[in-house]
Design a binder for these strands. Structure first.
Lengths: 196, 196
DNA sequence: ATATTATGTGAATGAATAATCACAAGAGGT
DNA sequence: ACCTCTTGTGATTATTCATTCACATAATAT
């Protein structure tokens, strides 16, 4: 028998196990059985700490939202120059995806969008905030003369995020067959040519 | 009893029904039962024309690949100016997604990437060709002076595709709650500022 | 020490799903 | 008209999955 721990600790373990499963096998394979195996506990014990799968989904979304997307806001609130901030956000995001492939898989899973509308709305809201954060940094870059005038901050932010998202997609799709860091560096270099 | 038709016709009907199901309910809901209901035939009849679900997936991928991604190649091979070609490809792609939301859902589904490796490789190959096609057009645009020198054709192509992909994602995720065409026009206008 | 509560688990249940099968019935050739 | 091949279907099977339950055991309060 597994040693006993408080339900708070077990909840965290279960959420981490779920994230690991999504990263390795995708949202489709995020079954109670798989989570239990990854967390090293029985299936029934999962239900001791969560009322059901939906509650695990919510907890996972909360974890991703608070621990991850808050990072960009912190960087954006710092005192560096706008372009430096953008660069840091960009490479942090890429590094994060590399480390936790489950994050983009979960956030952009059509199963979540279509099967858990309330959760999808929460996630859409967080993404909206993320877009606004980056938009603000780009707008500052334009005012300060680091970025060329005439560009639209919001559309440029969407372009940057699309770049990240598409790279992550190609990477997971190709079974991590290329060096995502190297690819990201080339994309960033070109982005600089485009926006300056 | 349903009227009898040749297996070729039924295959097309089944593939279209499958695409419709993916567009409406996502890859997770792409069950034999759902396909049969959408195609208006019995579940057993699906197996009369396909050996199994995997074969339906392959046929769907073939349909998407040949009928859709071939379009960009046709446009790219035309005699217009590079920037005009890019614009046409961009808006064709957006229009296509609007009409068949199942296409991006299927192509970018983690269920396909992780659960059907061979299919994922085929799709990755097609996407690679698509990227190369757009890269070629951008390179021509640079040579002809329509696009500013110094930009990297491949990375700029990836940026453009990421823009499309991210827009499609936000659109399906938000339950089609904004005017994608309008959004696409703003993105294109900004893209022009970036590349010229 | 004992009672109570929290945590852990194997077994069972019911629903969904992919696939198969025996049989029905139309289409086309002879 | 008869035969054969193709197409269509309801019923069935085996599997997977989410969830529940009775029972075991450790921690904590009294």
């Amino acid at each position: 028998m597994l040693e006993k721990k408080s339900t708070n600790i077990r909840k965290e373990e279960i959420v981490q196990a779920a994230l690991e499963v999504v990263g390795r096998k995708g949202v489709r394979a995020l079954t109670i059985s798989a989570i239990a195996a990854s967390a090293g506990m029985s299936e029934a014990n999962i239900y001791r700490h969560f009322n059901g799968k939906d509650e695990i989904y919510s907890a996972l979304a909360d974890f991703i939202g608070s621990s991850v997307m808050g990072k960009a806001a912190t960087i954006a609130g710092g005192s560096r120059r706008p372009l430096e901030k953008l660069e840091t956000i960009f490479f942090s995001h890429i590094a994060l995806i590399t480390e936790h492939p489950g994050i983009p898989r979960f956030v952009f899973s059509d199963d979540i969008h279509l099967g858990h509308r309330i959760l999808a709305e929460t996630l859409a809201l967080r993404i909206g905030n993320y877009i606004e954060t980056i938009t603000g940094v780009i707008a500052a870059g334009v005012s300060e003369g680091e970025l060329k005038p005439g560009i639209s901050p919001r559309e440029t932010a969407l372009t940057l995020l699309g770049m990240i998202q598409f790279t992550a997609l190609r990477w997971t799709m190709s079974n991590a067959s290329f060096d995502i860091r190297h690819e990201a560096e080339k994309l960033w270099a070109n982005f600089l040519v485009l926006v300056r």
